[in-house]
Amino acid sequence: MMHEKNLLGQRIRMLRRQQGLTLRALADGAGCSESMLSKLENGKGNPSINVLHAVSRALGTNMGSLFLPAPMPGVVMRRGDRHLAQLGPGNGQGVILEYLSPHLPGHVLQAHIHIIEPGGGTETITHEGEEAGYVLEGELALTVDGEAYHLHEGDSFFFDSSLPHSTRNPGQTTARVLWVNTPPTF
C-alpha cells in the first residue's frame, strides 16, 4: 500500500530528525545500509519485520509508532476508525494489523487483530516481551521455538516473545486473531 509506505517513511524521517540523527547514524544503529534507510524514508523500500524492529529500537521506540502519524485520541476507537497496517513481502505476506490500542512511546501494552489471508503468515522473529492471543475466526498455525501448534476458533495461546515464533493461516478462509503483547513491538 503506497500510502502506508509513505506514512512509514515520513514517521521514520521525523523521528530521526527529532533526535538529531543523520541517515548514516540511524543506519549504523539499526544495522542496515544507509541506502536502504533512504529508500524506506522515501516510501520506496519494503523492509522486513526484523529491519523495522531494528530501526524502531535504534530510534528508541516501537514499530507501531512508525505507522501512526499522531496519537490516537480518546478512550474508544469505533469499528472502521481504527488504523490498519498491511505487512509487505518478507514481513508477513497476506497479513493486516488492525490497531486496537495506540502504539506510542511510554505505552506498555499493545493489541491488534491480526487478519491473515489463507496461506498468509509472518516470518520467524524474536524480540523481548510476552504475547497472548485468541483465535476469533479461522485457523492459525503457530510455531514457537520450533514446536508447531494448530489452533482453531476459540483457541488461545501465550508465549515468551524471546522464543523464535511465526504464524501461518493453513485454512481456506481469512483468520482473525486478537493478539496482545507487552512491551509494544509492532
Score class of each variant (00 low, 15 high):
Ser56Pro: 09
Pro184Trp: 01
Ile125Arg: 04
Trp179Phe: 12
Leu140Asn: 02
Tyr134Thr: 07
Gln93Val: 13
Leu136His: 05
Ser161Ala: 11
Ala85Phe: 13
Phe186His: 01
His152Asp: 14
Pro164Gly: 14
Thr124Gln: 13
Gly119Phe: 10
Arg176Phe: 08
Met1Ile: 11
Ala141Gln: 10
Ser161Asn: 11
Asn46Met: 08
Thr167Pro: 01
Tyr134Ala: 04
Gly31Met: 08
Pro47Met: 14
Arg11Trp: 03
Ile125Glu: 06
Lys44Pro: 00
Leu37Thr: 02
Pro69Gly: 13
Leu68Trp: 01
Thr126Tyr: 03
Pro69Asn: 13
Tyr149Met: 15
Thr126Gln: 15
His3Glu: 11
Glu130Tyr: 06
Phe67Ala: 03
Arg168Gly: 01
Val51Leu: 10
Gly43Glu: 06
Ile12Met: 08
Ser162Glu: 14
Leu40Thr: 05
Gly106Glu: 09
Thr167Arg: 00
Ile125Ala: 12
His107Leu: 07
Gly43Arg: 03
Leu178Glu: 02
Gly154Arg: 12
Glu139Met: 11
Leu68Ala: 08
Glu153Ile: 05
Asp155Ile: 07
Gly120Asp: 02
Ala30Gly: 13
His152Ile: 11
Phe157Met: 14
Ile115Arg: 03
Ser166Tyr: 01
Gln172Thr: 15
Ala58Ile: 02
Gly88Tyr: 06
Ala70Phe: 14
Leu142Gln: 00
Val75Ser: 11
Glu34Ser: 10
Ser65Trp: 03
Met77Ile: 09
Gly64Ser: 10
His103Ala: 12
Cys32Phe: 01
Arg11Ile: 06
Met63Asp: 00
Val55Phe: 08
Ile49Cys: 06
Met63Asn: 01
Cys32Trp: 01
Gln172Cys: 12
Phe186Ser: 03
Ala54Gln: 15
Ser56Val: 12
Phe158Gln: 05
Thr126Trp: 08
His112Phe: 13
Arg57Gln: 13
Val51Cys: 05
Ala148Arg: 15
Leu21His: 04
Met1Asn: 09
Pro89Gly: 10
Ser33Thr: 11
Gly20Arg: 10
Arg82Ala: 13
Ser166His: 14
Leu97Phe: 07
Asn62Gln: 08
Val55Leu: 06
Gln18Gly: 01
Arg78Val: 10
Gln93Ala: 10
Ile115Ser: 00
Gln110Glu: 13
Ala148Cys: 12
Arg176Val: 10
Lys44Gln: 08
Leu68Glu: 06
His83Leu: 10
Lys39Cys: 02
Gly43Tyr: 04
Leu109Ala: 09
Ile12His: 04
Gln10Phe: 04
Ala85Met: 13
Pro164Gln: 06
Asn62Met: 08
Ala141Ser: 12
Asn181Tyr: 01
Pro105Arg: 08
Ala25Cys: 06
Pro164Thr: 14
Gly20Asp: 11
Thr185Phe: 05
Ser35Trp: 07
Pro184Cys: 05
Ile113Ser: 00
